[in-house]
Nucleic acid binder design. Structure first.
Length: 646
RNA sequence: GCUGCCGUAGCUCAGUCGGUAGAGCGCGUCCUUGGUAAGGACGAGGUCGUUGGUUCGAUUCCAAUCGGCAGCACCA
């Protein structure tokens, strides 16, 4: 037992019986039993010695049970309301559950209301969940006979060793591995259906599209209410909303997937660019600039034309008399271009590593459904670099990259980063031996730097595996930002070489790496992370000088000018409005500092400083105020000072 | 790209069971000079995403198309 005690029972005693033998209240509260760490039905006989824990609604495991069972309850509700609908799969997920249905008619928002009402009825009926073991072939035949093709297919594809189990709840039953709660009543009423969306059968776009209904489910109404409130709060930090409210950028349909940066947004962009450029300068990078358009021959040589061509923008430059077209490609990546610079002149092993950086503007023809605010766009600028080095230099370069990368994320306020290692995709260039070497190289680099990571088979770039640094946006979606990719393929395909110590030509290794990923995506993430309330050094408008009376206008102008001269981004608000309105408006637009000046300040040559989110005022002489603000507005320096670069 | 929903003033949205539209905020003018989250009055603003069809008549119904949102698929 969890408290360390040992209890003895006859073989075949159920979890329910164990709970009952301990306490009546425990028997009542019991939802499932954890046998050697695996959650199982309360009614299942326990056949051997094991560590045992009774799962109640207090335990974290209960949420998953509630959500999974809510999916079953929803499936029953749907089939009773819409006969002929086929059921497929319905798992518990973060914050809730979903179930995929096959039905010709779409579910409408009204349908969701009806389904939800039906679910409450089913919960109230409190039918016990009962488990049955079926013969495999019989199960397939049965599900086919009642028109459940998908269920039959699931069983057919289960490994032969798998026990086929059916769970009943009243009249309704479903193929399911379990475990389940004792009865539908235990699901409770703290659930809500959220949305309907399409989802491909088995996640493959070649398969038919099913209708997925998403729901959220919690232990108590209070938890549900908190979750819904949290969603509302998250919406307020959404970069698309804040981008508009704060006048940072916009997108419009004539340039779908591209960003119009407004003055304030562009100031933010340039501030970030200046920061990261200083970081790169200090880390031994050289910066370059390369063209947007290239003849198709370059992308054919690199492999992009074949492997990535569907996502590239192609332009017909001319048509020859014989009808052959000359095609140009807009670069989707900077790597082929950087190899061209590397290839100019002979390179010696003494030149390596070369860390070639570019704030490279790329275009990718992303599927329309993939576009999302400024987080997923068709035109973006990467803080890209390619490190040309020898194989021996890889571990050290990787370590330096990780240090730089993590330092930047820390400076910018991100402490929760998910690290993933994306392995070879189906469509790829290079031999399996080369991939083995590259994948193992990155694994070791990660381990050597003490980074915990998750492996993602099949997700790598066509030329190499990649380490991905993921950040989570306001609505819980995960986005790849930084990346480190180890590439033995492109140097070969684009014939990059250096002269080694032995006087012979050798292939360099290429490390593709980005820290922010793209400015667009990263700024979107920063907006959400800070909810628009940027630290002083990043804020597009650092302070507003607001007048109380028009007599203070000249002093306000003087204050603003002095601030700007000192390098601060300051605006003056001398409108004929009350100070209440000015404070409100600049607070809503998230300006970090207000310098309020009225008659007293004008007379004494002072300013009243008011910080965003605080009601307190601090009256200071102008010089002192500026000195304070300048100190505060200095970008984070990290380990090595980057002041000189500013 | 796929499924569903959506597209009305600068913004957020209401509305028209087919007879060319309305609110709040914002904007402009005027009054107000007010000490830390909305002072007041008046006024201007829209061929209802685009194209086609049905109709005497379309913002409203239908279709196509473009874009947005959610999810899926994709994401070098």
């Amino acid at each position: 037992m969890p408290d360390g005690s040992v209890r003895t029972y006859a073989r075949g005693t159920t979890g329910a019986e164990v709970a009952a033998s301990i306490a009546k209240s425990l028997a009542k509260a019991a939802l499932a039993v954890k046998v050697d760490g695996a959650v199982r039905d309360l009614a299942l006989p326990i056949e051997r010695d094991a560590s045992l824990e009774i799962v109640t609604d207090k335990s974290p495991d209960s949420l998953e049970l509630i959500r999974h069972d809510a999916a079953h309850v929803m499936a029953e509700a749907v089939q009773s309301l819409y006969p002929g609908t086929q059921v497929t799969i319905g798992p518990a997920i973060a914050n809730g559950f979903y179930y995929d249905f096959a039905r010709d008619e779409p579910f409408t928002p009204d349908d969701l209301v009806k389904i939800e009402a039906k679910m409450h009825e089913i919960v109230n009926a409190n039918a016990p969940f009962t488990r049955e073991v079926w013969d495999r072939d019989e199960a397939i035949r049965h599900f086919l006979s009642i028109g459940e093709k998908y269920k039959a297919e699931i069983i057919r594809d289960l490994p032969g060793t798998e026990t086929i189990t059916i769970y009943r709840q009243g009249q309704w039953y479903d193929l399911c591995r379990g475990p389940h709660l004792p009865s539908t009543g235990r699901v409770g009423h703290a659930f809500k259906l959220m949305k309907v969306a399409g989802a491909y059968w088995r996640g493959d776009h070649r398969n038919p599209m099913l209708q997925r209904i998403y729901g959220t489910a919690w232990r108590t109404e209070k938890e549900l209410a908190e979750y819904l409130h949290q969603l509302e709060e998250a919406e307020k930090r959404d970069h698309r909303r804040l981008g508009k409210e704060m006048d940072l950028f916009h997108v419009q349909e004539e340039a779908a997937g591209s960003v119009f940066w407004h003055p304030k947004g562009w100031t933010l962009y340039r501030t970030l660019e200046r920061y990261i450029r200083a970081k790169l300068d200090h880390a031994g990078y050289v910066e370059v600039r390369t063209p947007q358009l290239y003849d198709s021959s370059l992308f054919k040589a690199s492999g992009h034309w074949d492997m990535y061509g569907d996502n590239m923008f192609k332009i017909r430059e001319s048509v020859a008399e014989d009808g052959t077209e000359k095609l140009l490609g807009v670069k989707p990546m900077n790597c082929p271009a950087h190899v061209q610079i590397f290839r100019q002149g002979l390179k010696s092993y003494r030149d390596l590593p070369i860390r070639m950086a570019e704030f490279g503007n790329c275009h990718r023809n992303e599927p329309s459904g993939a576009l999302h605010g400024i987080l997923r766009v068709r035109n973006f600028t990467q803080d890209d670099a390619h490190i040309f080095c020898t194989e021996e230099q890889v571990p050290d370069e990787a370590a330096q990259y990780f240090k730089l990368q993590l330092g930047v994320y820390k400076d910018l306020g991100f402490d929760r980063i998910a690290v993933k290692l994306a392995l070879r995709p189906d469509v790829r260039a290079g031999s399996d031996e080369v991939w083995d070497k590259a994948e193992e190289g990155l694994r070791q680099a990660l381990r050597a730097n003490g980074l915990e990571f998750e492996e993602l088979p099949g997700e790598g770039a066509f030329y190499g595996p990649k380490v991905e640094f993921h950040l989570t946006d306001a609505i819980g979606r995960s986005w790849q930002c930084g990346t480190l990719q180890l590439d033995f393929v492109l140097p070969e395909r684009l014939d990059a070489s250096y002269i080694g110590q032995d006087g012979a030509r050798h292939r360099p290794v290429m490390l593709h790496r980005a820290i922010l990923g793209s400015f667009e995506r990263f700024i979107g993430m920063m907006i959400e992370h800070y909810a628009g309330k940027f630290p002083l050094w990043l804020a597009p408008v650092q302070a507003v000088v607001a007048t109380i009376v028009s007599d203070a206008d000249p002093w306000a102008a003087e204050v603003a000018a002095a601030c700007r001269k000192a390098g601060l981004r300051v605006e003056a608000d001398t409108r004929n409005e009350k100070i209440n309105l000015k404070v409100r408006e600049h607070s809503l637009s998230k300006v970090p500092v207000m310098l309020v000046v009225g008659g007293r300040e004008a007379e004494n040559r002072t300013v009243a400083i008011r910080r965003l989110g605080s009601q307190q005022q601090e009256v200071l002489a102008l010089d002192a105020a500026i000195a304070n603000l300048i100190a505060e507005a200095r970008p984070p320096a990290g380990g090595d000072s980057i002041d000189s670069a500013f």
